[in-house]
Computed example of a mutant assay.
Amino acid sequence: MIDEEPVAAADLVGARLTGVTAARHQRQSATAPHLSHLWLHLERLGPVLFRTPGEGLSFRSDAAGPATTTGTTATTTDPADLPLTRFLGQPIRSVSAVEYRDGGTAFTAGLALGFEGGRVRVLGLDGALLVVGPDGHLGGVEARLHEDTALARVVRTCSSSPSQWNAWTTGGRYLYFRYRHGEGSVEHFPGGPDPDAWDEEGSGLLARWHDGSRRGEIALADFLVLAGLRLAPNSEVLDGR
């Protein structure tokens, strides 16, 4: 992912979407809106500008915000046909990278942003930003897009206050799940489940939400739905308490 004055993906988690500004690409598609620039107006972060250098996604803070035009392309605010607009007022629950793989070609194509009620992918492909909603499909391109969100192994380490698990994705990433006082979170630590090996480098928050309760216990299936994760076929689920 290519960043200038970057906002980290983890910074987006928990930020409330207050507005969307889009600049259209001259070339359009029936499968998803094609944009040249996209600003997400986020509570506590301000405007965050998304664009593509050709393949992949660049995103950074943009304190000035969008101008009335970008080159010769007019901008629109909260366009009704943009999938993100339906989630105005909601916090971003989860963020995951979307990888493009095709033979020897591989790069980070964009981000999947999780909200209550669905996910939106913002992708940089072939010189355009594509915004793909929960029901959107990019045809044959879909087979080349991958997210490391399937779990190969999950071990419960505490049943309540907090509910807590260690988990590993099919791609080998270690994730730490925690739920307490109605708040759930998913964090990635490259050092694995030993807290003594955790440090900031390479670590990151992947999901956070509050369900409005004060509960300290949640079933794994419910946690995964809220976190935007899933069990892989033949996954191993263990009780390590």
Rank of each mutant, 00 (worst) to 15 (best):
P233L: 10
R173H: 08
R24M: 12
R24L: 14
L40P: 02
G172H: 12
S203C: 10
S213I: 05
G171F: 09
P33L: 06
G71A: 05
D81K: 15
P79F: 04
E142Y: 12
R180I: 01
H137S: 14
S29V: 04
G110Y: 07
E99T: 11
E147I: 12
R156S: 01
P134V: 09
G118S: 11
R119P: 00
D102Q: 15
L220N: 06
G204E: 01
F107T: 03
H181I: 00
F115V: 03
Q26I: 09
V131C: 07
T157G: 10
W39K: 08
T105Q: 15
G114I: 04
I2D: 08
Q28S: 08
N234Q: 11
S203I: 09
G54T: 10
H34Y: 09
Q26R: 14
S163A: 14
E236I: 11
P162W: 11
A74T: 01
T85W: 14
L130C: 00
S203M: 10
L84M: 13
V20P: 01
A30P: 05
R230W: 07
L82F: 09
P6H: 03
L49Q: 04
S161Q: 15
L130T: 00
T169G: 07
F115W: 05
Y179Q: 04
R173W: 03
T70S: 13
A97K: 07
P193R: 09
H188T: 05
L138P: 07
C158R: 13
P195Q: 02
G171H: 12
L229W: 01
R27D: 00
P66L: 06
W165N: 10
A150S: 11
L88D: 00
R60L: 04
L17R: 06
V20S: 04
L129T: 02
M1V: 11
T105K: 15
G216V: 11
